[in-house]
């Protein structure tokens, strides 16, 4: 296989693997956080506002690791730095 073919194949496989493995952790974490928040709201319904607000902020922070994986896989697929390197040189 030529260099370009190797890079393309590896980039595609790794983009899939990045998003697949990278979403496991945040998914588990977010599910856990939502479950705990629902439990807390069930115990203290009058604090639901505070809990929901904190939950959203926390979810966004947990989710950011998954977003990093998404961005990395997008970079691998669409703006792969090594692609132009080997194509030009």
């Amino acid at each position: 296989m030529s260099d370009l073919a190797v890079i393309g194949a590896v980039a595609m496989v790794m983009a899939g693997l990045t998003i697949a493995i990278g979403s496991i952790g945040p998914a588990l974490g977010e599910g856990w956080a939502v479950a705990r928040a629902l439990g807390a709201i069930a115990q203290q319904p009058d604090k639901a506002n505070v809990i929901t607000r904190t939950l959203f902020v926390g979810l966004a922070m947990v989710e950011s690791t998954a977003i990093y994986c998404l961005v990395v896989s997008m970079i691998l697929l669409f703006v792969n730095p090594f692609w132009n390197h080997f194509k030009g040189g």
Partner: peptide, 16 residues
């Protein structure tokens, strides 16, 4: 960095 990439990633992934 996290602030920037979080907002960008969410909006960009939605559009994509």
């Amino acid at each position: 960095l996290a602030l920037a990439v979080r907002l960008f990633g969410n909006i960009m992934s939605g559009n994509l």
